[in-house]
Design a protein around this nucleic acid. Structure first.
Lengths: 130, 130
DNA sequence: GGTTGCCTTGACGCCGGTGGCAAGGTCTAG
DNA sequence: CTAGACCTTGCCACCGGCGTCAAGGCAACC
């Protein structure tokens, strides 16, 4: 399988695949003419990468999952390092949710304040207009 | 007031102030030697900018608030354009919260899966080890 | 031989809010 | 006169995951 086919089957671009390779996530053999050649296992690796990226992982976070897959596991999630990353990410997401809740509260307060003040301004304008 | 003093009193850097100026948010008079000169009102503007940035607004979102302040309002939030931005941001934050909740659920599922599989792997390893 | 379509490496662009540095002008105090 | 503490404009670097273009090699078909 060449890079174009892998990209299509994995639902990504050749550019992304080369990028993953430079970051040590994807591996390719080379044919005589220098083309990258992939086997079926690499397709699973790339799909794992894409799935984790979609969830919001960075490439560095993904590395343990790929290593886990390469170690022969059916899922990249089952290795201790992967689980550690999952836990850390979960904590990060929880923190993010908390932060957004705080921001949301702040925004609601400001909105309420703004609307109250707008009413004041409106009535002041009405008085001024007379 | 020169830029250094304004930066210190507003809790930011001179670099940031010049950046805000190039983006039309902060205004400065110039003294004879070319130095930027600010009045007290500009301090409030910069504090408004910093507060909104801290909440997660972009500079473009902040522009209406500054305009509102310059129009003579005590708060930058009371003008219709500001309120519109506040509402939009609130919706965005809500969407972000929803997305993070979905990610969180996904992560929990994957963690549960991983741990279940790890137990399997462990027992398999234990059996293999015998 | 020419065209088409794959592949290769390399390098710049993006986004947003700065940080940092260069090379210079200005003001003040000793 | 000099040191140092301000100020000026301008430009490069950063982060991350690519998109996109450039310039060229290789394969296959007419």
């Amino acid at each position: 399988m060449l890079i174009g086919e892998l990209a299509e089957r994995a639902g990504t671009s050749t550019r992304a695949l080369r990028y993953y390779e430079t970051h040590g996530l994807v591996r390719a053999a080379r044919s005589a003419n220098g083309y990258r050649v992939y086997d079926e296992a690499e397709l699973h690796v790339v799909r794992e990468i894409r799935a984790l990226l979609a969830v919001g992982f960075g490439l560095d976070d993904i590395r343990p999952f790929v290593a886990c897959l390469r170690a022969g596991n059916a899922s990249g999630h089952v290795c201790p390092d992967s689980v550690a990353v999952l836990r850390r990410k979960l904590a990060e997401v929880d923190a993010g949710i908390d932060r957004l809740h705080a921001v949301r509260q702040e925004l609601r307060d400001q909105l309420a304040h703004a609307i109250a003040h707008r009413e004041e301004t409106c009535s002041r304008l009405r008085r001024t207009a007379r």
